[in-house]
Design a protein around this nucleic acid. Structure first.
Ligand SMILES: [Mn+2]
Ligand SMILES: [Mn+2]
Ligand SMILES: [Mn+2]
Ligand SMILES: [Mn+2]
Lengths: 232, 232
DNA sequence: TTTGAGAATTAGTCTAGGCTAAAGCCCTGT
DNA sequence: ACAGGGCTTTAGCCTAGACTAATTCTCAAA
């Protein structure tokens, strides 16, 4: 029959739904399914809460749920998730460059605001910033049309010793970690020469542009996403 | 016994609670009680919803409820309401002057954002604006300490014919009305000479600084709050 | 003083979105 | 082939915050 065509008016998602969709997006960005327990951990809720939400979201067509396997976003769910991610990252960018927020504090603020801002406000902020392509942590900002850049980055911990890389993106979740990285000069855009790595999951040693070196433990080095930068 | 002292950590109010408190504040600003039906109308909910919320709010000590009479804010409720009003008005000011919002659209945006912004963000916005004292509609902005200016303004509809007034504040709710007022040059700060008023609730006729006149119907003239400005 | 209109409250439901405890499924190791 | 452990789901419960229908209160008019 197919009599029902989804018109246009999106019934406006709740805060919870929006956060679930973002989680599923992030957990499936490398392909595959997002599992119940991964979502639960990411959102800090109990697994049954996730099961319940997944049921509702698949009824509304935002996700595809394979019981006992996990979930994936439908095209509609992916559009909604990318819209939220755009909001989040534009907000982080705006707060950082226009209101003097430091990059450690901005994530938690954006996490709430992303659900309250209008499309119009986001586009005004983006405009005021000159349509930025990356947020303060180096993550790509989806376009208003819902396109997002996908780069193949390699964690510093797995970079080639002797090579040269540009630090591109760092995780935005932990303020203290971000403060530390800023202190160390490890911010997106910086060029690093990988001069050594200790065995048995040991630290990676890098040299910065000014000739100073940093010893980066493996746990941290796994979260510094780099683009190899051979000669130039 | 009195063993329980409310410590400090305010348990963070919900969006609904915050909006109810604001309504009660506005409805009691001239003294007296806010009634169930007035609150219901202002928030566009059914009266029983208000009764239910009033019960909860009085249990948490934010309002004083006299059954079948109405409610008033406790000092704690008043503090919370003023904080929300500060947020709302700082947001309206910021969006208008920093992001090019027009004064008709800004209210609805602020109505959502006021519940999502942190104290810190509001203070940064206030700082960026130079600690504004009035919002774009001329309403006074409470200080961070919770003080608000109380002026005795008179509606244009009740101003003295032959006198001179300064338009101080206009209602912020209806975009179309605000657009019209802006077109007519009737914005806060403008000096008006009241040259006539038609009988039987007729319009008030005013002259602007540039010598042009405006005919303002009574319904509108009741919503233009003015400060008498005799000689100077 | 009684009465009726209108306002307020109570009673009973509903949905969203959490939770814990119990049950069910899947897979790996034996 | 199957037993056990670890996920996942189901069952059942809870709170916030809405709603409608029914009840109760108040107050002014007769
Ligand atoms: Mn969020
Ligand atoms: Mn980020
Ligand atoms: Mn609001
Ligand atoms: Mn306003």
């Amino acid at each position: 029959m197919n009599t029902i065509r989804s018109p246009q008016p999106p019934p406006s998602l709740t805060r919870s739904v929006e956060d679930y969709l973002k989680s599923v997006f992030h957990l499936t960005s490398q392909g595959g399914f997002a599992t119940t327990s991964d979502i639960a951990e990411m959102l800090d809720v109990a697994p049954p809460s996730v099961s319940g939400m997944m049921k509702r979201l698949s009824e509304t067509g935002l996700i595809e749920h394979v019981p006992y396997r996990g979930v994936q976003l439908t095209p509609q769910g992916r559009r909604a998730a990318l819209q939220m991610i755009r909001r989040h990252r534009i907000l982080e960018s705006y707060l950082t460059s226009k209101l003097g927020y430091d990059w450690g504090d901005v994530h938690v603020e954006a996490e709430r605001l992303e659900h309250a801002v209008s499309e119009k406000l986001i586009e005004r902020m983006a405009d005021a910033l000159g349509e930025p392509r990356y947020d303060p942590h180096g993550a790509p900002i989806p376009t208003a049309a819902g396109e997002i850049e996908e780069a193949e980055l390699v964690p510093l911990a797995e970079s080639v010793v002797g090579g040269s890389v540009v630090l591109q993106e760092v995780g935005d979740e932990h303020p203290a970690r971000l403060h530390y990285l800023a202190e160390q000069g490890l911010t997106p855009g910086v060029r690093l020469t990988v001069i050594d790595r200790q065995p048995f999951n040991g630290p990676t040693i890098v040299r910065l542009g000014d000739g100073t070196t940093r010893v980066v433990g493996q746990e941290l080095a796994l979260l510094l996403f780099c683009r190899p930068s051979d000669g130039e």
